[in-house]
Design a protein around this nucleic acid. Structure first.
Lengths: 66, 66
DNA sequence: ACTTTAAGTAAAATATATTTTACACAATGG
DNA sequence: CCATTGTGTAAAATATATTTTACTTAAAGT
């Protein structure tokens, strides 16, 4: 599962901590997902995409092995 | 997390077992998600939506408490 | 130099999703 | 009747996501 969280955060100019707060998870969770260490739940993925005003699939993309 | 899996299956006329096979999970997993017993991973949610030729958010919707 | 902010990381604990095996029940077609 | 298909369910095991606490480093500002 690839994602464009870093770019979207840059556009909004918000930190991992602030994104975490907005979607009600910890900063470590955002960091891990942003770095591709694991993929989020569907609920969290939708919430993150919403912060960026995008559809879930415009932020998250399947990759080989998913 | 609400979903329209049952309706989409009906349109395609496929069983829970066939959907499960197409997205590479067990029939019980599809059954549980379809009945709202828990919400899927982002990866699985995208795969399911793809079977129906839809965007993830057209099949899955957040609800109170998500 | 000092402090603050942002990001990366890690180990242990907890929560949640998914699998496996198995049984039950209704509907249907032979 | 009998076998088959589709669905609901359940308990135990395993996998994965998320939290908590805490430490490190780099960059920026004072």
């Amino acid at each position: 599962m690839k994602n464009t969280i870093r770019v979207e955060r840059a556009i909004l100019n918000i930190s991992q901590a602030e994104l975490a707060e907005r979607v009600q998870v910890t900063r470590q969770t955002i960091n891990a997902i942003e770095l591709g260490k694991y993929s989020p739940s569907a609920v969290l993925a939708i919430k993150i995409a919403r912060v960026f005003g995008k559809k879930m699939e415009d932020v998250f993309e399947l990759e080989e092995g998913d």
